[in-house]
Amino acid sequence: MARVVVDVMPKPEILDPQGQAVARALPRLGFTGVSDVRQGKHFELEVDDSVDDATLDKIAEGFLSNPVVEDFVVRRVQS
């Protein structure tokens, strides 16, 4: 078994109103110096060793993300 992390983020050119709302809230909470926030999704998958990188890419590209508006990164991490 291995842990695989998939991070999905809105593409840079896509408006991210949720991230903007977070960014606007920070000064109200007293946190200064944060100029921008982008909000995405973080998935942790426990996978058998038999699952190869190509399959993980298919999962990330074909299901966990929408390539029209999102980018993704797949990482294998120590479990």
């Binding site: 109103p17 949720q18 709302a21 929408n66 029209v68 508006v69």
Partner: peptide
Amino acid sequence: LCEAGLLPGALLRNSEL
């Protein structure tokens, strides 16, 4: 339909949330 690829593009969160 967009997710299924029958129509192009995507529908995202309303800009005013």
